[in-house]
Nucleic acid binder design. Structure first.
Length: 528
RNA sequence: GGGUCUAUGGCGCAGCCAGGUAGCGCACCGGACUUUUAAUCCGGUUGUCAAGGGUCCGAAUCCCUUUAGACCCGCCA
């Protein structure tokens, strides 16, 4: 590969941006401002995959800017979607609001103007924390302001053709019978219960009647109201199969990534944009969903959700950005246990960037450097920072639980890993500590002790607990074992099991001194 | 019914999306250190890159076929 073939920073993001530009040039559209979009779900707790959609779109925006174009990210909250089921961990009081648009449901926690805004805020907060800039838009405002009225009108006029095409493209037949528009019932505020039967073209009104409907396995009661919805004013929304197209056209969106779960919707929307609305669809890239370690799609139930906020308790914002920018293809199982390797990988990338690690392959070198720049949102540090290996921090924080920051810091200084304390390292110790506490909890293993071992242990506890520091802890342990008819080998094993929860460990004498012999004495005494 | 992804050492995985020396962790073997075990440090072994075909000077990487597994869609948004 020769150098002039490398586009931008040499990553998939640059390639994508370049494809987008090529296509736009062929289409002959204005390139004064290229808008990229990311949709934010507002019905469930946003996991890190939702964040990824926006982070990656932002990456494309950065790549476009790097290539000399103006660009903007629109983060669009689908908060006119109806609530379909109550997320695990949320109050049952939401029951009465099922099928209502999430932005018309009160926030059960009272901290935002609606349930929908509560959910969106979690995601927006995540974006803020990793440094992503965006223009926030909401579905409810979009419809209230009638921004999509021309597109809705065109779509409803062509509903028969669209219904047939949906059936042909993805095999879904319901839109051959119903209009792809869901009014919000003016009487009961519910969305999916109001079935649109007829479009009155001249008046731009949709006739509907509100009846019982099934969402999943749940029956939702309709109120029987018959009404008309003015598509330019009243609330109601397009079905997903056509809504993106309307939005892309109205907002002039040129790029949107999507997860494979909505592949069919995107296929239909592309056709609707091109053929019905006569506005070329945006450039796309498809990504795989993150799976949890069992291979299942990440469940949105509260306990299981990997949110940005939870991730940031254990890892840096850069570890999230690295996860999302390093690649886009491939199914990936994701868990918090990926954090340590991502933390290390970032350090490695930084070393490559600053030339401390040599890479022979030019293309790969450029790509790695480029990835490092994207993870820093194209604003990389001027100087290499002091690296502290995250796994080392995990080991140390496992051992030191009290006065953790101070004691781990001292160890790092002793080891010569760092020359002086600073706030960043302090922060690293804290998050590594969180990780140790959460995931490396030392299991209280049942340690089998016979009477001779107990006796020996008791003597050791006394020795460690005495005011005088034993000269050589290692030797003391060895002697105690020998003089009490316990195999030294077994005795050491017992100590490791009690202190570390494993049958092996570091050399125990110095190790006990590190932890503090009195604390060890206390721990051991629980077993005597 | 439609679609997508995955397959690399004993185990777990990276590398593939822009082709150019097959890598990491664990395990294993040897050495150093140790009053036991271990940790740590240094060195080492382990591969028909699922199978078959194609493109290419060159394929784990790109294309096609096959096999196996996983997931998504076919409610709704």
């Amino acid at each position: 590969m020769s150098e002039q073939e490398i586009i931008g920073k040499g990553t998939w993001i640059d390639k994508l941006a370049s494809e987008l530009l090529e296509r736009e040039k062929i289409l002959g559209r204005s390139l004064d401002l290229i808008k990229v979009e990311s949709g934010l779900g507002a019905s469930g707790v946003p996991h890190i995959g939702s964040l990824g959609d926006a982070v990656r779109a932002y990456g494309v925006k950065l790549a476009l800017e790097n290539l000399g174009y103006k660009s903007e990210l629109i983060a669009y909250s689908d908060d006119l979607d109806g609530l379909r089921k109550i997320p695990t961990g949320f109050p049952d009081s939401l029951e009465e609001h099922l099928a209502k648009p999430v932005s018309l449901i009160p926030d059960p926690y009272g901290c935002h103007d609606s349930y929908g805004m509560h959910m969106s805020s979690i995601l927006l907060d995540g974006l803020d924390k990793v440094g992503i800039k965006y223009q926030f838009r909401r579905a409810i405002d979009t419809y209230k302001q009638g921004l999509l009225k021309d597109q809705i009108h065109t779509i409803l006029q062509n509903s028969t053709r669209i219904g047939d095409k949906i059936s042909e493209l993805v095999g879904q037949e319901k839109y051959q019978k119903y209009l792809p528009y869901f009014p919000v019932c003016s009487n009961c505020n519910r969305l999916y219960t109001a079935e649109s039967t007829e479009y009155i073209t001249d008046e731009k009104k949709v006739k509907y009647n509100c009846h019982d409907t099934k969402i999943g396995s749940k029956m939702i009661k309709g109120c029987g109201h018959q009404g008309e919805a003015d598509i330019t004013k009243d609330l109601g929304k397009l079905a997903w199969k056509v809504e993106f197209a309307a939005r892309w056209t109205a907002f002039d969106i040129r790029f949107e990534a999507y997860g494979k779960d909505i592949m069919d919707s995107v296929k239909v929307n592309d056709w609707v944009a091109d053929e019905i609305l006569q506005c070329p669809h945006p450039h796309h890239v498809k990504y795989e969903m993150f799976l949890d370690k069992g291979g299942k799609k990440i469940s949105k139930s509260l306990g299981n959700v990997i949110t940005a906020q939870k991730w940031l308790e254990f890892g840096t914002p850069k570890s999230i950005l690295l996860l999302l920018y390093k690649r886009i293809t491939g199914a990936r199982e994701l868990g918090f246990d990926d954090i340590p390797s991502l933390m290390s990988e970032y350090n490695e990338l930084e070393d490559i960037y600053f030339g401390r690690i040599k890479i022979d392959n030019q293309a790969k070198l450029v790509k790695s450097k480029g990835l490092f720049e994207y993870v820093n949102l194209l604003n990389p540090p001027k100087q290499s920072s002091i690296h502290v290996n995250y796994r080392l921090l995990l080991e140390l924080t496992k051992i030191f639980k009290e006065d953790r920051v101070q004691r781990v810091m001292k160890k790092l200084l002793d080891y010569g890993v760092i020359k002086e304390e600073n706030i960043e390292i302090e922060n690293l110790i804290k998050i590594a500590g969180n990780y140790s506490d959460e995931f490396d909890e030392i299991e209280k293993t049942k340690v089998e002790l016979d009477n001779t071992a107990k006796k020996a242990l008791k003597i050791l506890v006394d020795a460690l607990g005495s005011e005088e520091e034993p000269e050589d802890v290692q030797n003391t342990i060895y002697q105690i074992a020998k003089s009490n008819d316990v195999q030294p080998k077994d005795f050491f094993k017992i100590l490791y099991q009690i202190i570390l929860g494993t049958s092996r460990g570091p050399k125990i004498g110095p190790f006990i001194s590190d932890i503090g012999r009195k604390q060890v004495a206390k721990t051991l005494s629980e077993y005597t």
